Each structure stands twice: as C-alpha cells, then as structure tokens.
Simulated assay, not measured.
Amino acid sequence: MLIGLSTPVVVQTPAMASPWEGGADIEDVARIAEVADSLGFDYLTCSEHVAVPVDEAGLRGAVYWDPLATLGFLAARTSRIRLATSVLVLGYHHPLEIAKRYGTLDRVSGGRLVLGVGVGSLRAEFEMLSAPWEDRGVRADDAIRALRSSLSVSAPSYHGEFHRYQAMMVEPHAVQPRVPIWVGGRTARSLRRAVGLADGWMPFGLTPARIAEMLAAVDIPDDFDIVLAVGPLDPRARDECLNRLRALRDVGATAVTCSLSASSAEHYCDQLASLRDLVDEL
C-alpha cells in the first residue's frame, strides 16, 4: 500500500489544517518534502482552486497554492517522491495546456508526475472562468481521453466530442510512457469514469462502508489504484493510527493520502518519522 501526504501549508481547509500552517513559508514546505522523500513516502499532493468565493471559504478554506508552481519547486528539492495533483479541475484547462505544463513537470522531475483530475464542484468558480458548468461531466470524460492520447507524445492527435486537434507539436512532453491518471470524486459516476478512462480513483467525503459498497458494484481492473484519504493522524497514538490505516487497507485502498496533526513544521517532520515506523508494521 502506497503512503502519500496531503502536503501541509499549500492547502489549508478548516477541517484539516493545523494553526502553525498559517504562518509557514516555502522553506517549511520544502523541508517537509525533503524529509518525506528521504523517509520513503510515496507521493506528495497539491490541489487546485483559482479563486474561492468568500461565502465558501469557511468550509473549503481560502489557501490553495498553485499546483504547477508548487510541485515544480518541490521537484527540485526532492529526488524520488512522486508529485500528485489532487486534483486539477479539467474544465478549467484545454487538454494540451495540461499536456504541455504537466508534461514539462514530468520531465524536470524525472518522470514523477501523477495526474489527479476532477470534474469540479464549485459553480461560482466555473462561472468566473467562463467554463461550462452543466455538461462538465461529459466534457471531463472527453478531456481524459484527450489527455491519455496526448501526454506522452510530441505530435498529439485527438478527435472527440469537445476537443479536436491534429498537426500540432507539444515539446517537451511527459517522459513516462503512461502517466498515471487518478480521478477524484464522490459519486458512482466518478468511479465508473476512473475505471473506464483512468488508472485510479480518489474518493472524498465518503465513509469506508460506502466506498466498499461502491467498489463491490464494479469490476476493478488489475493495477488500478484506490486512493483513500485519512487524517489528521497522530502517530503518537499508535494503535488508533494503525487501526485507521488498516481499515482503509481492508476496504481496498492501494494508496492512502495522510494528513498529520502537528504543532510546527519541525514537529510535522518528527511526526513523519513516527508514521514511517508505524507504516512498516502494516
């Protein structure tokens, strides 16, 4: 089971963020990434929101660092840990825009990109960006198909319902022959989208029982990732922490994205070391 981190500081949701994150800076984030890299954690995440309406910030938070800039910086401060968007909102981007920008990230990181994508759930943000809202699901399906055909080639060609292009060059492009694509969501449709078009599913806001029920209703392909989130974890509460991780493994998780409780960046690094020791017992 892969163990990743919901990178602190770069996304600060009220339900998950610790008070110290509000005063942290990029060097704190870099230090945490370096420690996670050295300890053998599998991936770091960063989410995307361009702008959050004031009346939504109390629930969603307002701090969302740009994932491309953030993960590009962390790529230069690490050597092996993978870099996962969790998630890019497909409706905000043309597929070739993603292929160029994140293909470049894949190249500069030595092939460490995991492209997490989602349909999006914030209507006001769609409207601000003049992005279509009502048919965003079918548009996302088309965008994933376009990305699959375009991420790892220099001369992509695609003819779909919403995206069509040919005789175009995209250099640089991803160095991985097949960039892993994980689909976020909380509906049965998001799971079907992930199974049919991608390499993994990242549900959110669902109980383990509901996730198990949804997974039982579909045929999961071999080598398909079930990426579940947990936290905030306190590794000092050893038994509780292990029980929570084992519960997700029993549901079917092949990867777990962890949030950690901590009082400072230094404490967070200590918590990482403790979590690493616990994970070895799973």
Rank of each mutant, 00 (worst) to 15 (best):
V52F: 09
V29I: 10
W133V: 09
I98L: 13
G111P: 09
L83E: 08
A51S: 12
A194P: 03
G252Y: 06
D199R: 11
Y92R: 10
V183L: 03
L88K: 04
S109R: 05
P172Q: 07
A146I: 01
A237D: 08
E48D: 11
E125S: 12
R107H: 05
L278I: 03
L115D: 08
S154E: 14
E134K: 15
G196I: 03
A140S: 15
I226D: 05
L74K: 07
V230W: 03
S38G: 14
E34M: 10
G252F: 10
M214L: 15
V153L: 07
C46Y: 00
A76F: 04
A124G: 07
R189G: 06
R276T: 05
R123K: 15
L215K: 06
S274V: 03
G22T: 10
A30C: 11
D106S: 13
I211T: 10
T104Q: 07
R276P: 00
G116M: 01
A237W: 02
S264C: 07
V251S: 04
V117G: 10
D25S: 14
P19G: 03
Q271D: 06
Y268G: 07
S261A: 12
D25M: 00
L275K: 04
Q176I: 09
R236E: 11
D234V: 04
A188L: 07
V9T: 13
R246K: 10
R112K: 10
G252A: 12
Y102H: 05
F162D: 08
M214W: 02
L39R: 13
C258M: 09
L272T: 09
C241K: 10
I81V: 15
M16W: 12
I81G: 11
E281D: 07
S86M: 13
V117H: 05
T45W: 07
H173T: 08
R136V: 03
A15T: 08
G196D: 14
A247T: 13
H267N: 14
I220L: 12
V251L: 02
T85P: 03
A212C: 09
R139D: 01
L197Q: 07
T45N: 11
I220D: 09
V227L: 14
W133Y: 06
D42Q: 13
L90W: 00
V251K: 05
F41Q: 01
L39Q: 12
G91S: 13
G120N: 14
A140F: 07
I144D: 04
P95G: 04
G72D: 01
A140C: 11
L105V: 06
A62S: 14
Y165L: 03
W133G: 14
S274T: 02
Y158R: 12
I3R: 02
R136F: 02
W65K: 11
P156L: 01
I211W: 01
L233M: 12
V54Q: 13
S121R: 14
H93D: 13
A262D: 04
D280G: 14
V179I: 10
A155T: 06
T70N: 11
S121Q: 08
R210F: 01
G231C: 07
D199W: 08
W133I: 12
R107I: 00
T70D: 04
R238Y: 08
P172G: 03
T207H: 11
P235L: 01
A76E: 09
H94M: 12
M128Y: 03
D239G: 08
